[in-house]
């Protein structure tokens, strides 16, 4: 396959960026999107040019490191992560636009790499459970009803890649935050911090400069793990409940 790539190049966080055009040849349809970019980078290095910086780690679709907005879609045209997107999803001769996640809370560090540490701070605000350390408890020590376990697992699938923020017209982190809140709030292990978790995580989310939810639904469409839009509804419910409880105290 022969492709034309239009890639966002930006020297550093303070520099002005722009789209640069590159041609790549000899791309196999079985290559992943990142392998295609590796091919481009090898050519750039041979030519003595600066390779394109992009995030990646496991390349198995489970770590949440890879990003990229491909032809206007976070993670590209398939519902998966960029590392699991294959070149067979494109046609020979295609022009592909590759851009970084766009959000005020995700500033570009270089080229296609953005700073997603805002997510870490949201997790630090309440995305944890307090447990005594020591040997692991027996698996059946705390019974969890099956529907609750399934619900928690569905939301626990979030890998924190930030596609929801990139796709949201308001740069909101509602789907990410709600996935974490729902995952832990439904479980008995998460019950002691149920109220403070949602209040603190939402407060931190606002603090980071993410936008608000207008229920456009772009986040859920972009999510490679299929976190549903109703996750946000669930978090709103938890937030209202926690606010009411805090007021009674």
């Amino acid at each position: 396959m022969k492709l034309t790539l239009r890639v966002w190049r930006q020297k550093n966080a303070d520099a002005e960026g722009a789209m640069s055009t590159y041609q790549v040849d000899g791309i196999s349809p079985d290559m992943s999107f990142l392998e295609m970019l590796d091919t481009l980078n090898e050519e750039l290095i041979l030519k003595g040019e600066e390779p394109v910086a992009f995030d990646h780690d496991c390349r198995e679709g489970i770590c949440g490191a890879c990003s990229l907005v491909i032809n206007g879609d976070a993670h590209g045209p398939e519902r998966t992560t960029t590392c699991q997107l294959h070149m067979r999803s494109f046609k020979d001769g295609d022009t592909i636009d590759i851009e970084p996640w766009r959000a005020a809370a995700f500033p570009v560090i270089k080229d296609l790499v953005v700073d997603r540490s805002a997510f870490d701070r949201i997790i630090q605000a309440g995305g944890y459970i307090s447990v005594p350390t020591g040997s692991a408890p027996d698996a059946h020590a705390t019974p969890v009803p099956k529907p609750d376990a399934d619900f928690a697992f569905e939301h626990a699938e979030c890998i924190g890649c930030g596609a929801c923020v990139a796709a949201c017209p308001n740069g909101a982190a509602m789907l990410f935050t709600s996935a974490k809140v729902n995952h832990l709030n439904v479980l008995p292990q998460g019950a002691p911090e149920r109220e403070t978790r949602v209040l603190d995580m939402v407060a931190q989310m606002d603090e980071e400069g993410f936008g608000g939810c207008t229920l456009a639904g772009e986040c859920a469409t972009a999510c490679p793990k299929g976190i549903p839009l109703t996750s946000i509804t669930g978090m709103n419910k938890e937030w209202l409940r926690a606010t009411r409880k805090a007021a009674k105290k």
Binding site: R6, W8, M19, V69, G72, D97, E99, R102, A103, A104, A105, C168, P169, N170, G171, A172, G209, F210, G211, G212, T214
Partner: peptide, 10 residues
């Protein structure tokens, strides 16, 4: 919301 998404996609 507008501040949270300062640069548009090309």
């Amino acid at each position: 919301d507008i501040r949270a998404r300062p640069s548009k996609y090309v």
